[in-house]
Each structure stands twice: as C-alpha cells, then as structure tokens.
C-alpha cells in the first residue's frame, strides 16, 4: 500500500498497457514520472491526466534505443522529483514485430533485443542500484508469456522476453531482504497498438489493457512476485511448457 504514495516512474508511458496504468495510478493519487520517446505525445498525455484527474505529472522524453542514457535515467527522474525517493519503477516499453519479418530483417531483429532486453537490463539495474542504496523500492517488469517457451511462431520476441524474465527473477533473488521488491508480469494476448495485426482482438483469450493494468496495480499493492495476466495464462503456459519436445515439434504453436 505504502508504495502508492511514493512517486512511480513509468518507462514507455505511451504504450497501450502503460496508458492505463498511468490512468489508474493517478486516480489513486500516486505522483508519476512518465518516460517515453516523443516529447509531443508526453505533453498531450500529461495535459490529459491533468484535465481528467487534476494531477500534474512529470515527464522525461527518452528513447529506449539510447542505450548510453539508460543508466542515468534514475538520476534524471530523481531530479524531476527534486531529490525525492522513487517508490516504484514500471518497465512497459517493448517492441514486437511479426516473426516472419524479424527473421529476414536484421534491423528489426536487433531492435527486438536492444529494446526488450539490453535497454531494460541497463535501466532496471540502474534503478535497482539506486533503490537498494535508498533502502527500498519496487521494480516491475512487463515481460510476456512468450518468454516461457520458445515457439516457432514468435521465438525472437519470445527469446528477448525470456531474457527479461530471467533478469527479473535473478534481480528478485539478488535483492531479497534488502527492501527492493521485484515483480515479473507476464501478460498473454492483449489488445494494444503493439500487437495490432499480430494478435486477434476478438479472440476470447485476448484481454483489454484496462484489465491487465488493473492486475499490475493490484500486484504492486499486494505481495505478489510474479503474475500472469489474465490469470488463466498461468495454466495455459504450464501446459505448453510441459508438452514433451517430440510432441511439441509436431505442433504449430
């Protein structure tokens, strides 16, 4: 509960899920620092939140592909907060290209790992260092069910998310007992701009970003360490992980 009164940093605040998280946190009165690529869009997002809920948020325009800048982002956030403690950081940025395109286009393949894994490791480690120094904080990473088992239909994205999941698991282990809490979030299919044209929004398994954001906010408020959202993906992925390899190879997942 306490986390919600301290400022929260949202990395990639313009993503479909992050927009909803920002909305829901602002309504709870959580001070926010929004980080995203486009200064123009950030300004619109800030004015929208101000008008809807009467709360002013801080913004920082930064691109996840500026890898050199990642380790200094926690300091930039702290400066925006006039040196105040950061209660929580939520990593929401990520890219997903159709598997077929990423196989042929090395730029897209490289970007998948740069954004989803390298920049995430750089920025989250920097936040972890700062938070453990300050004596506490919550780190939330949005990974994916796609990281639970490499599948032919989406393994490049899946591999980058598997790396992110391992990073978050290890971080949780490393900082256990220091006051730094790490939460792994594994959404299934979600109807967002990122998944447009890849995920079928009318599938009964496809969730709304509002639902996923609510699950994430609840995970921060409770003692969760790893969530699947919607929850039924825990079961689906348990089955998929346990299909024997010989049988799995014959499937089209």
């Amino acid at each position: 509960m306490k986390t919600m009164n301290l400022p929260c940093v949202i990395l990639g605040s313009l993503s479909g899920i992050a927009r909803e998280i920002a909305d829901q946190l602002v309504r709870k009165g959580t001070p926010l620092v929004l980080v995203a690529r486009s200064a123009e869009e950030l300004e619109i997002q800030a004015s929208d939140l101000k008008i809807r809920y009467g709360i002013t948020v801080e913004t920082i325009a930064a691109d996840a592909s500026e890898l050199d800048r990642m380790s200094s982002l926690p300091e930039e956030c702290a400066r925006k907060l006039k040196g105040g403690n950061i209660g929580c950081v939520i990593l929401c940025w990520g890219v997903m290209y159709p598997q077929g395109e990423a196989e042929k286009n090395t730029q897209l393949l490289k970007q998948t790992f740069d954004i989803n894994l390298t920049s995430s490791a750089l920025v989250l480690q920097a936040f972890a260092n700062k938070m453990s120094h300050a004596g506490g904080g919550t780190i939330v990473g949005i990974s994916s069910v796609a990281g639970d088992r490499g599948r032919g239909s989406n393994y490049l994205y899946g591999a980058s998310k598997a790396g992110l999941s391992a990073l978050l698991d290890g971080m949780r282990h490393r900082y256990h007992g220091t006051g730094v809490r790490v939460i792994t979030v594994k959404p299934g299919m979600v109807n967002t701009p990122m998944t447009k044209g890849i995920v079928n929004p009318s599938s009964p398994l496809c969730a709304s970003p509002i639902k996923v954001a609510a699950d994430i906010v609840r995970a921060i408020e409770t003692r969760s360490v790893q969530i699947y959202t919607p929850e039924y993906w825990r079961l689906i992925m348990a089955v998929i992980r346990n299909i024997p390899e010989q049988l799995f190879l014959k499937s089209r997942l």
């Binding site: 479909g16 619109i44 997002q45 004015s47 929208d48 008008i51 809807r52």
Partner: peptide, 19 residues
Amino acid sequence: TYLNRFLSFDPQHGIIHCE
C-alpha cells in the same frame, strides 16, 4: 481509439479543447 486526449480546459469560460 487512442486519439482521445484532453488538451486544455478553461473552467472559467467553459471551453474544452480535446482530440
């Protein structure tokens, strides 16, 4: 769907500017 943001609101004169 996503172009639904408020740009300004003047509560004095009741003018709202939005997408």
